[in-house]
Nucleic acid binder design. Structure first.
Lengths: 351, 351
DNA sequence: GCGCAAATTCAAAGCGCTTTGAGTTTGCTA
DNA sequence: TAGCAAACTCAAAGCGCTTTGAATTTGCGC
């Protein structure tokens, strides 16, 4: 039988008002009194009743999530991982979720309904596309939100958390160039997604700085699964002048690419270099690849947790968070990258 | 500005009591009055305030979900799909989720905390293992729950929704036997999972009925990804007496298996038959395989929705659901299954 | 020691719903 | 037409918290 405010106040010989204020950090409470209250809370294990708080404050203490059910997104491994981070953080603060599976064409209606329902205090948005129309919709909805990722074009002033995809792939490409690679391929995510566009831009930029051009025949866009990584790599290797290095937008793609490379009788790291972006999925660790993978790393789960923090912090008016965050991915060099030597190129040609 | 009960009652010239009762289906309300109330609800768009309901009834109107973060589960595509079904149904009833990411070793504590928190009315459980200890824990916790899947051994009297895995794989195997196959392989899920055990049992049983034995060298257990399907199939094909047919526990596994088959210069459906279990993942449609896949089909999303229905129905005391449900998977024959002819066997041997 | 502002604390009024216990009608029976 | 049970409807009391507006203390300058 949990104690409630009234009992706690009685126990302390204080009024509910004072106890409530002590707990919620109001300044007009004597420091000693607050200490007494806090102690009593610890001893009794008092936890405020969320339903009552919701009723009294009008806050929902929950976060709305629109879960895309379009092919290849909803049940994407990446979504689960991000969600885990989000949930982890939410649970700490006793926040709930309202998960709204929604087809892309219904998304706008879903947002509106959700915002109007009063069931959520804030919304979360992901899978940004170029010129994503959802940002304008959310801005018009007067409900706080945070975007994971960034659109390209359109309004600039909205809260987001993104990683610097351009920089990550610029850095990765630069490393490859420094190692002597000149023909560099890119196995990327779907073409309409903002992160994929930025990553390609990073590659292009680095090449350009060295006076090189990105060969469009060495760029593939697809859903980021093992399977597509394999197919893309296979096609690259069949080209008359195949790449000596390849960048993959996910470890899943890299898994397939590695298989294609091995199957062609080539060795990762010596014959062909490979760098993948690593979302730190527990299923797919780059260090466990037969040839450990050089990666640009940024934890998706951590991003989820951070987004939740910001959303919750905003709702509770606690802590000041930057409105726009751009995380820098780490470039971690492992065995899958090596110099592009003449010998490599020859051995490759022989296949 | 949404209307509340008081305003609605005023509008109707009724008391809040009567309106509330009319809405909640109490019998002591005149049928005509109830119609009037319902009409007014439609016109005003009245929606009861969940926070107030929670406070008044003591119900949380939410469902607890323990999301396993062990390797290869949490961010599993199957989990996302099931979750989508669950969420879809929950949203309809304005139910929330409390997602609790938890490492397997903390699960018990997580259950207890969740049950004690009063934040959820019911719990959901999945990824059943043989002799799964979590069932006993949940039963002791006096909180309603539904299990997706079934344990093997241990208590029998608990609410579950499962598919008849034994029957599904029995049926699939029987079909293969009828087509003349004698050496049948199984690429299964992880060995400790109940569904995998049952599927293997189904295969064994069918073979036994035809006087055949399951060759243990033709059974692999692993995480159900593309990658492992490929590896398993590759190993099977290297055996001195390779299988003429293979059963896969998921379409992801089948994808890998098909690749290995093609790579070996064989053709699915003529040289080697393949049947996969299809969870109806939007990402991976068996009908879109280059050779459309024969499958045992049962929608994971539908299962999620059903579990949510049962959980919610139980909480609201609405509708009577069976406590234990065993869904029958459909066996859908497509082009990936064909007769095992001598010619096939010969051509296979030549490789 | 007095008076006043600042510092604390408090009682009470909601938040919007459910539900108890009591009051009103209605429909029949006698 | 009185009388009574059945059928409806209602006023009011919570649920556990926040917050307003007022009351009480305390601290200081004179």
């Amino acid at each position: 039988m949990p104690v409630n405010l009234k009992q706690l106040a009685e126990l302390l010989g204080l009024s509910q008002t004072t106890v409530s204020r002590a707990l919620n950090g109001y300044p007009e409470v004597n420091a000693k009194t607050r200490q007494r209250v806090l102690k009593a809370v610890r001893e009794t294990g008092y936890r405020p009743n969320r339903a009552a708080q919701r009723l009294a404050t009008g806050k929902a203490y929950s976060i709305g999530l629109v879960m895309p059910i379009a092919s290849g997104i909803g049940s994407d491994i990446h979504f689960g991982e991000f969600l885990a981070g989000l949930a982890e953080e939410a649970v700490k603060h006793d926040f709930h979720f309202v998960l709204n599976p929604s087809a892309p064409e219904d998304e706008e209606a879903t947002f509106r309904r959700l915002a109007a329902s009063g069931n959520v205090d804030a919304l979360f948005l992901a899978h940004m596309r170029a010129n994503d129309p959802r940002i304008a919709i959310l801005k018009s909805l007067s409900i706080p939100f945070v975007v994971h990722g960034r659109s390209i074009g359109g309004p600039k002033d909205y809260p987001f958390l993104d990683i610097d995809n351009t920089a990550a792939f610029y850095d990765a490409t630069r490393l490859l160039i420094q190692l002597g690679h000149r023909r560099i391929a890119l196995i990327n995510g779907q073409e309409h997604l903002a992160f994929a566009i930025r990553r390609k831009k990073g590659v292009t930029r680095a090449l350009k700085e060295w006076g090189l051009d990105l060969d469009e025949t060495l760029v593939h866009h697809s859903v980021m699964t093992d399977e597509y990584g394999y197919r893309s790599m296979q096609r690259f290797l069949k080209q008359p002048d195949p790449p000596t290095a390849v960048l993959c937008s996910s470890t899943a793609l890299a898994l397939g690419a590695v298989r294609a490379i091995n199957q062609a009788g080539l060795t990762v790291g010596t014959d062909i270099s490979i760098i993948a972006h690593d979302d730190v999925l527990p299923m797919l660790k780059p260090e466990n690849f037969s040839v450990p993978l050089t990666t640009t790393r940024s934890s998706l789960r951590a991003a989820g947790a951070r987004v939740a923090s910001r959303l919750i912090g905003g709702i509770l008016d606690r802590g000041a968070y930057p409105d726009q965050e751009l995380w820098r991915a780490e470039l971690i060099v492992r065995a899958s990258t090596g110099p592009a030597s003449v010998k490599n190129i020859n051995s490759r040609k022989r296949v």
